[in-house]
Amino acid sequence: MRATTMELKTPIPETTIRSLKVGDLVEITGLIHTGRDAVHKYLHDGGTLPVDLRGGVLYHCGPVMVKEGGQWVCKAAGPTTSAREEPYQAEVIEKLGLRGIIGKGGMGDKTSAGCKQFGCVYLHAVGGAAQVLAECVKKVRAVYLLEEFGSPEAVWELEVEKFPCVVTMDAHGNSLHKEVFARSKAALEKLL
């Protein structure tokens, strides 16, 4: 059973983040930024962002963006698989002062430890639900590193309203992904 939906407004205070538990349903309102493979490697290699993300939420997402009448319009914006950022994520959480990571598929022990240490949670959006999630994007405020990385890999600054996610890794070291893997592995051993 999941708890009732909790509203999160960015920037998010650490105490709020620490109160969240695996299985909680949350809705995010405020500014979030996209960042995926190229950005994580860039930050790991010493790169910096021209924008302050402290207290913010990083979204593993490569949206479909189209320029209409001089304004960027978000046509589709679901999460991408987060596991690829596992080598870099904990470091990026610390460096940028993030309170939330939105993605899909979950992440590993290193990120889990980073969430615990720095006060961050992993928020699972529904993969493939690009229209439901794009509907929550009320405005594309800015874009960074577009020339360098191309549209899907750029850092898009999005104003979102009631963006729905499930907490699947909390700031206390718990991971739904670890639990489900262990449970399904045990179940399979009996069925082979």
């Binding site: 999941r2 349903l25 589709a76 529904v126 690009a130 229209q131």
Partner: peptide
Amino acid sequence: TAEFALKTIRLNMEMAASKSQPICQD
């Protein structure tokens, strides 16, 4: 949360078709 995911998926299928926009951004 499994039901939440499938309900979101159902809504997403309807929205993509009616808005003529990609089901998934990838």
